[in-house]
């Protein structure tokens, strides 16, 4: 029985016909009904069923990849062999690149591979994670996204086990002068933190993303360009422009708002970037 309601099939018949033509389902003995059902599931998952964009949604579906995913879930040996030949090496390469480690990458890839094959059998059918793929992206990028999500979960799990690497070190010595200096340093760092927080929040989302990819995730300019869909020279130029803007705004806040002199502003930077293991992120409570 078809999962896609008759009204859906009727209303979007031309787009669905184009989808079936592009998908080449005959290669895997796939009927058009399974593709129509997949398109319906995808549109429902994406939340576009009530909108005017269903046609463009269907036209943007990566039809061949969707067709292959459906055929693999159905258990055909030919599509699965094609899937292994086409994507298994790339899956393992992606896992290595994401994990940054051969062993961890293999572990990630093995786990996902098994879930795509479907280790669990229910009602005579293998339950495969491929059922979550609706063709909105290429299947390779989708696999990379799943690998990356699992790696992030792994990092989170590790961070809960290991202590944070930054903590406030108390200076040695017990003289009053030393305590006073520590307090002064903490105050200057806090002022810088607040100025930085305000300046970061005033940035456009894409500028914040770019800064995060460069300073937090240490991506290369080329990799940032890949995420942001920009040429690396554009990334470089915009990063420099954003950094200049932040510098101006921070110093304007410290000078005009906190009445600090240029020497004191320089001290803010020196103490914040200096030897003391001060967790600057604690000065920025709203930065995730």
């Amino acid at each position: 029985m078809s999962e896609a309601p008759p009204e859906f099939v009727a209303q979007y018949a031309p787009a669905l016909a184009r989808l079936c033509k592009r998908a080449g389902g005959a290669r895997w003995n796939l009927g058009d009904e399974s593709l129509r059902d997949a398109a319906y599931r995808g549109a429902r998952a994406a939340g576009v069923l009530d909108g005017a964009s269903v046609d463009s949604f269907i036209d943007a579906i990566h039809a061949e990849d969707l067709s292959l995913a459906i055929a693999c879930q159905a258990g055909g040996s030919a599509p699965w062999e094609h899937f292994i030949t086409s994507f298994r090496p790339q899956l393992y390469a992606a896992a290595r690149a994401i994990a940054g480690d051969e062993a961890r990458g293999r572990e990630l890839a093995d786990s996902l591979w098994a879930e795509m094959y479907g280790m669990e059998v229910r009602d005579g059918r293998r339950r495969s994670i491929l059922s979550y793929f609706h063709g909105r992206s290429s299947i390779l990028t989708w696999m990379r996204a799943v690998l990356a999500q699992r790696h992030v979960d792994y990092i989170r799990a590790q961070s809960r086990i290991a202590p944070l690497d930054d903590h406030l070190e108390q200076p040695t010595g017990t003289s009053d002068d030393h305590d006073e200096e520590s307090g002064e340093r903490a105050r200057y760092v806090a002022m810088l933190g607040k100025a930085l927080d305000a300046a970061l929040k005033a940035l456009e989302p894409r500028d914040r993303m770019r800064m995060a990819y460069y300073y937090r995730h240490t991506l290369s300019l080329k990799e940032i360009g890949r995420v942001m869909n920009e040429h690396e020279s554009t990334v470089s130029r915009r990063l420099a422009r954003t950094r200049d803007y932040l510098k101006r705004e921070i110093e304007r806040t410290l000078h005009d708002g906190y009445r600090l002199s240029q020497d004191q502003i320089r001290l803010c930077y020196d103490w914040a970037a200096g030897d003391l293991q001060i967790d600057l992120s604690r000065a920025l409570p709203d930065v995730k």
Binding site: A145, Q149, D166, L192, M211, Y215, R216, A272, S281, L284
Partner: peptide, 28 residues
Amino acid sequence: PLDTVLRRAMRAHPGPATPECADAETLA
């Protein structure tokens, strides 16, 4: 100095997924 401050300020651990977070297919 600003670069050093930015690196330290942005260093943090990832949080859990929130309802606003995109799923794997949307991210892809």
